[in-house]
Amino acid sequence: MSNPDALGPMPEVNSEKRLTAFFDGLRRRSALKPRTELPTLEADVRQVGANADLISRFVAAATSAGLKVHRVGESDSIARVREILAECGAKTVYIEQNACLGGSGAPNDCGVAGPEIEQLTAELALAGITVKSDTSDETLFSVDAGITGVTYAVAETGTLVCQSGPGLARGGSLIPPLHIALLSAAKILPDLYDCLALTSAGSQLPANVNLITGPSKTADIEGILVTGVHGPREVHVILMQNAA
């Protein structure tokens, strides 16, 4: 390897031209003939069908991935959030702005079953908890918990899908040591395949889509599982089902 200290000038800035030249060269030299078909996927890839009991599949998969799932009726969700915060001794929380606005059409909108954000804020304040909703570093690095919505969930793997967008900080589900995700049961898709097929249907993806399947964890030291490395130590899913 050449001496890394000897930093030459930046290679030709016109990267577009260089890339085109490279692709042309690649085309000329490649010994491979295009003979392998791009397979059609759905039938073989799918593990969970639409007819499965999505809620119990999700709960089982999410639980074994280390998520803590709380099944609640829509009217109980705020009470359960309060309980979790109390159990964890959380005094300050960040609440994602778009998390709970029922029917607003925002990406992380958790659906008609979600608690209204004002009501959630009011009830938490009543319980003596400081609620913040700005996405500054000061807030995200200091709060005890982050409460966010979820775009989709995946029954097969117990995955929560969170997107970036207006009012949706990537840090909200990441930086605080505790993450509480509000999920309406109607958002559970059967299979990872459905989730990706759906996500790509739009013309352009949000800048950031995260598939969250468990708390932050490592087994780097002697294979022993430790949670809460750089992301949240605990992830609670408030799974809201319509009474109907």
Binding site: G165, A169, A207, N208, V209, L211, G231
Partner: peptide, 17 residues
């Protein structure tokens, strides 16, 4: 635990990134 799909820099209206 985390599968991140990243499509370019933050958009004008994104909160962070």
């Amino acid at each position: 635990s985390y599968t991140s799909l990243i499509s370019g820099p933050r958009r004008a209206t994104d909160a962070d990134g």
